[in-house]
Nucleic acid binder design. Structure first.
Lengths: 217, 217
DNA sequence: AACCAAGCTGAGGGTTTGCTCATATATCTG
DNA sequence: CAGATATATGAGCAAACCCTCAGCTTGGTT
């Protein structure tokens, strides 16, 4: 929405009838499935169309090409995550640092693990060079949401420094990705968000209330 | 080396003469370059051979296919990083927690940013489904190196819990990836490893010296 | 019913890609 | 030098792929 993708990446038209909406959904769903079962290299438009149960011509009525299809999928999935984070962060009125840590981590983690397959598909698809702007944009949204939440935190006096917010968001998103993509560590996944919350609390405290309660100046 | 890849992914033969070694190196180099300039989708064997200045036939004498080429490249780059970490961690004899944090982060960060282009190429290539085992293996090596270093740390009494090591390593590697891949935040990259070190120190302290020096039991 | 968008189909043209193989050159060994 | 081995070449074929288009079906409106 906010971004202006080149024509090559924009959808050709949006579905208006209910049946067409179902078709597009099926195409998205099929794309994610093929991505997971075959990998990005073997993802072909014909294969996606077949898996979606529609003809190849139908696919090309909505998307000008393979890349546009992936672009739309990534855009959709990223937007869902960003919206959930923004909503959750905005809802915290006077959070403690620990609240901030828990809220951000839990929300992000839940958004990702709610449908781990889709999350993995997203990681695969977003490795396409042209998606990087989309990812960047989403990261900025997360950073802004986090920074504004921290600013409403009584323990935080001034505006939180960029490096801290950047580092924190990078570490939460990157760490989660690492765990989700590593099929080996998938077993101890349930405990991960707890550790990640502890880590976040420790970091935020060390960044914002470092001295022993430096009283009012 | 440690892994036993299916024939489809193993190199066909190793170069023995110096000239052949140079050829294989050129192919690797060209692969990384094409990966960065064209992306994984447009990486073709013909294109790589051209960029390397060798004939397509030559490429196929050493690698049975495109995937094997990528596999070998990823294997090489991952091994370099793991070796550097293992070496650095093993060299620390009686480190403090802060030493551990700094050593691991600085070494990993230096290994990645020493050649950021190659690091980015690695991320692109490793998104191929079949590389996940290779990545997993490397992560385990990093975890082991970190765990053994922590065990030699006077502030750490017992063996460090798996969740902590897993979380820490995931966060350092994942966070670094996030920063390296995001071209926007590339500018404040120089400060990132400092924050990451602070974060690591804070986390390790909260995990290992949480109470006020719970004396011997 | 008659009409018109909107939606769907899938064979096939043109292109790209992966890979082979017959041939040629370079390096080594005795 | 002569033979053996290692290395390099690149035209070209089979397969895979992207995408179009002319015609067909479905849903909605009057």
């Amino acid at each position: 929405m906010t971004l202006i993708p080149p024509t090559r990446l924009k959808p050709r038209k949006n579905p208006v009838q209910a049946r067409a909406k179902a078709t597009v959904d099926a195409i998205f769903e099929a794309t994610a499935q093929v991505l997971l079962s075959e990998g990005l290299a073997r993802l072909t438009t014909n294969h996606v169309a077949t898996r979606a149960g529609v003809s190849i011509g139908t696919l090309y009525q909505y998307f000008p090409g393979k890349e546009a299809l992936l672009y739309a999928l990534v855009e959709q999935l990223l937007d869902q995550v960003a919206c959930q984070i923004e909503e959750a962060c905005a809802a915290a009125e006077r959070p403690t640092l620990d609240d901030c840590a828990a809220l951000f981590v839990e929300t992000y983690f839940a958004a990702k693990t709610g449908d781990p397959e889709k999350a993995r598909a997203l990681y695969l698809a977003s490795s396409h060079l042209e998606m990087s702007a989309l990812v960047s944009r989403t990261i900025v949204r997360l950073q802004d949401a986090a920074a504004q939440m921290l600013r409403r935190c009584p323990e935080v006096r001034a505006a939180p420094p960029d490096e801290v917010v950047t580092c924190w968001v990078a570490v939460v998103t990157g760490g989660t990705r690492q765990i989700l993509e590593d099929t080996n560590s998938a077993m101890l996944l349930p405990g991960f968000h707890i550790e990640l919350t502890r880590l976040s609390s420790a970091y935020l405290r060390s960044a914002f209330s470092s001295g022993p309660k430096r009283s009012d100046g």
